[in-house]
Simulated scan of single mutants.
Amino acid sequence: MPVVTVDWWKGNDRQKRADLVGELTATVARIAGCPADAVTVLVRDIEQDHWGRGGVLADAPAPVSVDRSPVLADVPHQGSAPR
């Protein structure tokens, strides 16, 4: 019946995997209307250097970004006169 595959970063311990499998199994069985023993959950631990997003490997240092959001004091509030 249902098979659920979870890819997540390596480093989660056995208890976290067991908790995940238990919770997913219960939820899928409830929604699918099948017995829990019909649900298979596959948990795959992926090294961060094997996981990319946005063209960058997950283990690469995050680029330093410059915050260009306006300072709240410079933004007129509704009902207040401009400064």
Rank of each mutant, 00 (worst) to 15 (best):
residue 78 Q to P: 11
residue 51 W to G: 08
residue 68 R to Y: 01
residue 61 P to M: 11
residue 61 P to S: 15
residue 54 G to D: 11
residue 49 D to C: 07
residue 54 G to M: 07
residue 7 D to F: 13
residue 29 A to N: 01
residue 44 R to E: 01
residue 65 S to G: 09
residue 65 S to N: 05
residue 72 L to C: 01
residue 56 V to Y: 03
residue 19 D to T: 09
residue 22 G to A: 11
residue 30 R to W: 00
residue 46 I to Y: 00
residue 19 D to S: 10
residue 48 Q to R: 15
residue 33 G to E: 02
residue 75 V to A: 03
residue 41 V to Q: 04
residue 38 A to H: 08
residue 63 P to C: 11
residue 63 P to Y: 11
residue 55 G to Q: 07
residue 58 A to W: 06
residue 29 A to I: 05
residue 27 T to F: 02
residue 18 A to K: 13
residue 14 R to D: 15
residue 45 D to C: 07
residue 70 P to N: 01
residue 53 R to N: 12
residue 54 G to H: 05
residue 42 L to I: 15
residue 14 R to S: 15
residue 23 E to T: 13
residue 58 A to M: 10
residue 61 P to D: 14
residue 42 L to C: 08
residue 18 A to I: 13
residue 61 P to W: 10
residue 76 P to Y: 09
residue 43 V to Q: 02
residue 26 A to L: 04
residue 17 R to N: 12
residue 26 A to Q: 12
residue 25 T to A: 04
residue 57 L to F: 15
residue 14 R to N: 12
residue 21 V to D: 00
residue 31 I to D: 08
residue 61 P to Q: 12
residue 54 G to R: 12
residue 59 D to Y: 10
residue 68 R to S: 00
residue 41 V to D: 04
residue 48 Q to E: 13
residue 33 G to R: 00
residue 14 R to P: 09
residue 26 A to M: 03
residue 73 A to I: 02
residue 29 A to Y: 02
residue 3 V to N: 07
residue 49 D to P: 05
residue 78 Q to S: 13
residue 22 G to S: 08
residue 30 R to S: 13
residue 42 L to D: 03
residue 35 P to L: 06
residue 33 G to P: 03
residue 45 D to H: 04
residue 41 V to W: 06
residue 12 N to M: 03
residue 77 H to P: 01
residue 58 A to P: 02
residue 73 A to K: 02
residue 59 D to S: 15
residue 79 G to N: 06
residue 44 R to M: 05
residue 18 A to Y: 04
residue 12 N to H: 13
